[in-house]
Design a protein around this nucleic acid. Structure first.
Lengths: 348, 348
DNA sequence: GAAAACTCCGAAAGCCCTTTCGGTACGGTA
DNA sequence: TACCGTACCGAAAGGGCTTTCGGAGTTTTC
């Protein structure tokens, strides 16, 4: 309330922000002392420090992070470069990155390249201009994507979609373990006639999950019912595949699906065919996409890729790298977890 | 490749970034000239400019946006503060904001407050410290949310969820027009026995859409079939409501749903009851949530809230406000659009 | 009582850039 | 030849902050 010499228009509160200088003057100390007091550094008498803090409070001083970063050489920001239009993967990763250090410590520039290489280049430039401390690249599938190269001045981590350059660091969910885990879950429930319906076989995710499924059946001495059924990731395919499966192998009692969408289709087809889930046939999805998994009847057990954890790890790696640690290279497979719901229960 | 006097560890390419000074030296001009050359300002001979540009290129110089912003007093960044965990609304809004000015002109800090007021405060502080030019607040429903207040030094726009303070500027989709549009669409297809199944009646969105639906039926001289059915936004409710509806009013030939999730449930129930869509009963959803709308059988006609447009408008408003324009106040209702798919076709 | 050891504070340099304003060199005009 | 206008360039200030280093004042030590 003590601003008498206002000059700029204050339509949207755009009266020059209070600077550290204002605070120092009001507290009757020098700029240097004010800085030290506020940052708890250097030798400042307790009384003086308090005086500065009070002054800052009264003027509602907010330190200019730009000036600070300019000196420090780091900004406490990371760029999140994505093409995941749905935001299904990128939002949890963002939350993880925000959480990696306390709230408000790290801020994230989210850029959506929309699958366009030109736009991606634009965004990278902009991020570097803004001196982000690192970049996390998020793909929309777990297939390798082109590397950004090594001539960037900041550490880069590839999340979800690994880089096609093995000397980059990539963090990706362990699809193989996910397939295995899902299948073991069904086996643990006493199912023995297990089939696997998945999506587009051109996707690494589809192949990796299928490998996991086979590993589990092999380990249990079981034979997979029919071949793995690949086509695409849609509910439509889930329905068609399930119908086909029931015709050929009516004795199936467990279905591992490559995605929640497929699982939704499978549930539909099973109900149309008069089969009950989970008693007659147990069904398990993949991705744990809440809106799909919790709205089906019954609700869908699914494998969750722990994206938030992945984001946290990615952010940690970036700041470790800045602090001089070697960022590492190659693809790291992060653990997934199973979320049990109504579509799988022990055999009675 | 011409960096011989490196000192810092270069593990992650963290060799001191080249500054404008480096470029100037290499081009044999002063700092001032280099700056003017690169920014195309002031009087610089064409040859000199070229020399500077070449030097910048060779050193792969990236201007430090921090220093630039420090001088300019604006950063070209906006904060997007959300609690939309799904990212369903916030991602399109982000894309719109990015697009408002060319690619890479404006960057967006996305912060997820997760519905937590404390975290929200943290994020606001952090955004202000980073000197964002403005803040866009995105709610996850169209009910009014608490205002951030007017003591912020930057313009604020509320998107999707309006502010509860009428002196703030809020941009929200026109739910009433959406309800009307959906209903008019069905009427235009020759349907006359139209019902409306919606979600939680405590939501402004549910009430507003219902008003629109009634407006349309009234205007056409039709009576809505039964009362508007409110409960919650789930598929489960969609199924239950549709069953009930078919029992009470078997002659229904068009259903306007309050959300795509509800519509999915309705489609399910209709199929279970042996009714065909769209011939027998036409169904229309709301939100145009792709994964739901395009995977149903038949695919779902739905009302799209034009989030991207909303984001673009919000960003424009913020920068207009910075340029001295009055940001305005009150709630603006933005137009929605209808996306037609297989669940609605003209009566044969 | 003088020297030594602290404690606390401030002047000034510097982070990287933009912008103002004055200066130099050149060609043209009287 | 003296003068002026033009084209181009550079020195320096400044934006908000942190950090170093020395200085002033106070207390302890011998």
């Amino acid at each position: 309330m003590a601003d008498s010499t206002q000059s700029k228009p204050r339509s949207t509160g755009t009266g020059r922000a209070t600077t550290l200088g204002d605070v120092a003057k009001r507290a009757g100390v020098s700029l240097a002392t004010a800085s030290k007091a506020i940052n708890g550094r250097g030798d400042v008498a307790a009384a003086t420090r308090q005086r500065v803090m009070d002054a800052a409070e009264e003027l509602s001083f907010t330190p200019n992070a730009l000036a600070r970063s300019l000196i420090a050489g780091r900004t406490g920001t990371v760029g999140l470069l994505t093409s995941d239009l749905e935001g299904r993967f990128v939002i949890p990763i963002l939350m993880g990155a925000e959480d990696a250090f306390g709230a408000g410590q790290v801020n994230v520039f989210l850029c959506d390249a929309r699958g366009d290489a030109i736009r991606e280049q634009h965004h990278i430039r902009a991020l570097l201009n803004r001196r982000v401390d690192g970049i996390i690249v998020v793909g929309r599938q777990t297939d390798p994507r082109p590397s950004l190269g090594h001539d960037l001045p900041v550490p880069v981590v590839y999340a979800y979609a690994p880089s096609d350059d093995p000397t980059d660091l990539s963090l990706t969910p362990d699809n193989r373990a996910g397939g295995r885990m899902a299948t073991e879950h069904l086996i643990g429930l006493g199912r023995t006639r297990i089939a696997h319906i998945s999506g587009d076989p051109a996707y690494a995710a589809a192949q990796d999950r299928a490998v996991g499924v086979r590993e589990a059946t092999d380990a249990a001495g079981l034979e997979l019912v029919g071949d793995v059924m690949f086509s695409d990731w849609s509910e439509h395919w889930g329905r068609d595949a399930a119908s086909l499966l029931l015709t050929r192998h009516p004795d199936v009692d467990g279905i591992v699906c490559g995605s929640d969408q497929i699982a939704r289709g499978v549930l539909d087809a099973l109900r149309d065919a008069g089969r009950t889930v989970p008693d007659d046939v147990a069904v398990i999805g993949y991705d744990n996409w809440e809106v799909l998994a919790t709205n089906s009847r019954p609700e869908l057990t699914s494998v969750d890729a722990n994206m938030q954890q992945l984001g946290r790890t990615a952010a940690r790696r970036i700041f470790d790298a800045i602090d001089g640690a070697d960022i590492g290279s190659g693809t790291e497979y992060l653990p997934v977890r199973l979320v049990q719901r109504g579509s799988t229960v022990p055999r009675r």
